[in-house]
Amino acid sequence: MEVLMIFAIGILFTVSTYLILTKSLLRVVLGVLILSHGAHLLFLTLSGLKTGAPPLLGEEAGSYTDPLPQALVLTAIVIGFGITAFMLVLAYRTYKVHETDNFDELRGSDDD
């Protein structure tokens, strides 16, 4: 399963890179979102998939899935949520002020 997952992750990275390189603010935001999905999955996959029971001691299993990457990814998801929210608001505000979402048009305002 890991190998398949890694190929899927490769697709996530490819698409997100492509989106980030475009000129539209929205596509960049979506690209970053997908990129973070890819990173989370890569992190978990490399620590081994399904190596044991869920990391709950109540399961009383012999071995558990590694809990540390999960804790890290949980933190990453919440931070990613915060960052995406901020980017969205930034995009929103940029559009309100400059009335465009195209990076080429946003570039180099003359007044700064």
Binding site: E2, V3, I6, F7, I9, G10, I11, F13, T14, V15, T17, Y18, L21, T22, G38, L42, T45, L46, G48
Partner: peptide, 24 residues
């Protein structure tokens, strides 16, 4: 060039992932 960059990012990530998995 965008397409090339994204494909190479994806390829490098995939290869790195696979190698790391095999290594571990």
């Amino acid at each position: 060039s965008n397409l090339l960059i994204s494909l190479s990012v994806g390829a490098v990530v995939t290869i790195t992932g696979l190698s790391a998995h095999a290594f571990s």
